[in-house]
Each structure stands twice: as C-alpha cells, then as structure tokens.
Computed example of a mutant assay.
Amino acid sequence: MAAPASRLCHIAFHVPAGQPLARDLQRLFGFQPLAAREAEGWRQLALRSGDAVFLVNEGSGPGEPLYGLDTRHAVPSATNLCFDVADVGAAALALASRGCRVPVPPVSVRDAQGAATYAVVSSPAGNLSLTVLERAGYRGPFLPGFGPVPSAPGPSWISHVDHLTLVCTPGSSPTLMRWFHDCLGFCHLPLSPGEDPEVGLEVATGSGHGGLRLTALQTPPGTVVPTLVLAESLRGATSSQDQVEQFLDRHQGPGLQHVELYTPNIVEATEGVAMAGGQLLTPPKAYYQQPGKERQILDAGHKPSLLAQQGILLDGNKGKFLLQVFTKSLFAEDTFFLELIQRQGATGFGQGNVRALWQSVQEQVARGQEA
C-alpha cells in the first residue's frame, strides 16, 4: 500500500454561498461549530459531533480551500475524505509512483498551536478527492489556519462515523476496490460467507426493481477508519431509473451518497431530529407487517409501534441486531443524505434493511417520475 490511513480526520463538502448545510447540521443533527476560517472567497466551517467531523467549504474562491481541492462540481457535494497518515511526503511520492494524480503536493501550515502537512490526491471515484494529513502534536481545536468559534452546548446524539457509502457506475466496484487497497490499505470485508471480492454481495430487492451490488472495504486492525461501502445498481425489469442511477444522474457522476453516523440511542436521536424539523424516509408499511418482524423487534428490546412511528428499521437475529433510519436528501438536488445507525452486537449492514430502504426510496422515485 502507498499511504496506509490510520484515522479519518474529516469529511469535506463544497456548497455555494448561502446553502444551508452548515446550519442544518447544527439545527437538525446536533453538530457543534468547532473552528472556522474565512479567506480568499472561502468560508470554511468545521463542525463536530463526538468524533464525527464535517468541514463545510462555502463559496468559490480563486485558490484552493485549505486541506482540500476546489473540484468546481456542478452540484453541492461531499467532495473530500481526509485521512491521517504517518508521513505525508513519503505518502505523496508513493501515491504518485502508483500513477495517482497529486494536484496539491505537500503543503505545510503553521499557527500558534503547531503545524500540519497535507497533500491532496485525485481518486477514480468521480469528484471525490482524498487528503492525506500529518498533524502529530498539533494542539488546536481543529487544524492550523482555523480559529475557534463559540458554540452553545447542545444534544449529543452522534458518537462517530460508522461507515461511508460511495455510489459508483455499474461494473466499476472491482477497480475502485483495488485502488483503495493499493493506495490507502483498504481490504475486502466479506458481507456474506465465501463472498467473491470481485462480485461483492448482490441484494435483490424484488418487484422488478433490480437491486444493489455492495462491496465493503476496511482498513487493518488498529486504525480508526470507517468501513467504506461501494454500491452499484443491478438492473431490473423496469425501464425507469432506480435510486442509484438517479444519484449518478443528479450528482453528475459517482460520489459519496451517504454517511452513516453511529448513535448509542437511535430512538432518542431520531426523535430529536424529527422534533428539530429533520425529514426522515418512511419505510413501506409492509416492512413492519412482515412475518416475525414484531417478534424480532421485541427480542431486541424495542417496541414495534415506536419503531414504526419513527421509521426505524431493525434487522438481525440470535441476539445481534442492527437499527437504522435514513434522512431525506440534505441538498435540493436530491443526492446526499445521512443515516443514523445503532448496533446491538451486529457487525453487518442489514440485508433486510437494505431492501426496505431501496423500496421506500424507489417508491418516492416513482412518485416523482409520475408527477
């Protein structure tokens, strides 16, 4: 591997001036302002909830925003993943030797709290770039060049990023898997026994809507990097676009479709998001009427009526359960969204929940196409 990642520092977004992403992360999801920077036409605001940090780059300056790259993408988007590495200079050389484009070579930034060095690498995943960062010993609240911002105590529903889902074009998952392996040290994480990494896990969703091909990747033990899930669509019998194809169309290419945020209490978090005005996806009514679903929810220690009311999905067995709820898009272009997830011993991604999410989103896609 060229530059083994040891930790996810932050996820960066590019939005136009006035876009409400930063406000919504605070008001709806309990993120708190961490640090800010304004220079050269950019307003950069880092927000945190637990160990999850989002960096919102607002505007479009003449140069590059610190720790990132201005991709000039056509729609608001999650554009950058920033990883801690041991040696940025060595990492940049190794990545370049593997054919990676390094549009921002190593840059050092210093302030009164210490120094950091970073480089930005272009990835083969659409507009998504990767920042490799070396910041050992930095004492500030975020990164050099940013100043602290006042924040009031608020809800703390989220503890960390559980995993990231990257939508890619049909047939490209094996190529992306090899790239993330060779460049950052990600390895295939089987989602089913005996799974072929070149094939991944195929989740058929029924009703002629095709389904999903999922390939999960993880870094070696001892690192603090979320699982990366590659998702591509399996064509069904219908001619209408499925939700993955719709993302590729509206996002104008592959990209980060959603971020899964871990919460230790999904019922409390979902209630808080809904009361703040956050919009959540509604699963199909039939989901909670499946044979054995009520018993499954009771076995997990939850009330079926409450989960149904809040739209929380639950999957699992033998004492290991996974609970999930999904937001609607945070952007008007109907692309990027968030997921809240709670694990009760489960380590997978809930195939039954994947089907339910697919069907609920597909119903909304169909209604939109009929309008």
Rank of each mutant, 00 (worst) to 15 (best):
Q26H: 11
T335M: 09
N80S: 12
P65V: 05
H10Q: 04
G145T: 10
A346L: 03
T79E: 09
D84P: 03
S172R: 15
G272K: 12
F180R: 03
G18I: 09
L230A: 08
G345F: 07
F337W: 02
K320D: 02
D315E: 03
A371V: 07
V267S: 06
A274K: 14
W179T: 09
F349W: 07
A231M: 10
D249W: 10
L256C: 13
F83N: 08
G316W: 11
M275P: 00
P153R: 06
A90Q: 10
R98M: 09
L8Q: 06
G348N: 14
R213Q: 11
V161L: 03
L322R: 10
A90H: 07
T165G: 06
V225D: 08
A36P: 00
P197R: 00
A46I: 07
I297Q: 08
T327V: 05
V109K: 02
T263C: 08
F142E: 03
L323A: 10
V203S: 05
I341R: 03
G61S: 06
L21P: 01
G61N: 11
C187I: 15
R23V: 12
N57H: 01
G140C: 09
G140I: 09
A91H: 07
E260T: 15
P170I: 00
R27M: 11
L21G: 01
A46T: 13
A74Q: 15
Q359C: 01
V259K: 02
D315Y: 12
G99L: 08
W42H: 08
A91F: 01
T347I: 15
V15K: 10
V88W: 12
F337H: 04
T335F: 14
Q19T: 13
R295C: 13
S360Q: 04
P141E: 14
T335N: 11
N353A: 15
V199D: 07
L357T: 03
L201G: 04
G89W: 10
P304N: 08
R135A: 15
R250H: 14
A92P: 12
C100P: 00
G68D: 09
A74C: 13
Q359R: 08
P105T: 15
V199Q: 10
G206D: 13
A332C: 07
H14M: 14
H181Y: 03
L8G: 05
P124T: 15
A86W: 00
C168D: 14
Q310R: 05
E64K: 05
R367M: 13
L323V: 13
P65Q: 04
L189R: 13
Q359M: 06
A17N: 14
A125Q: 12
G68E: 12
L230C: 08
S151E: 11
G236T: 04
D299Q: 04
T117F: 11
G154W: 12
Q32G: 03
L234D: 01
D111L: 03
L248T: 06
L314G: 04
L45W: 06
V120A: 13
E198S: 05
Y118G: 14
Q351W: 04
L189P: 02
L256P: 05
R178A: 09
E245Y: 10
L93W: 07
M177F: 02
P284C: 07
V225C: 11
L314N: 09
Q359P: 00
Q324K: 08
L298I: 15
M177W: 02
A74I: 15
N265M: 02
G99A: 09
G211I: 10
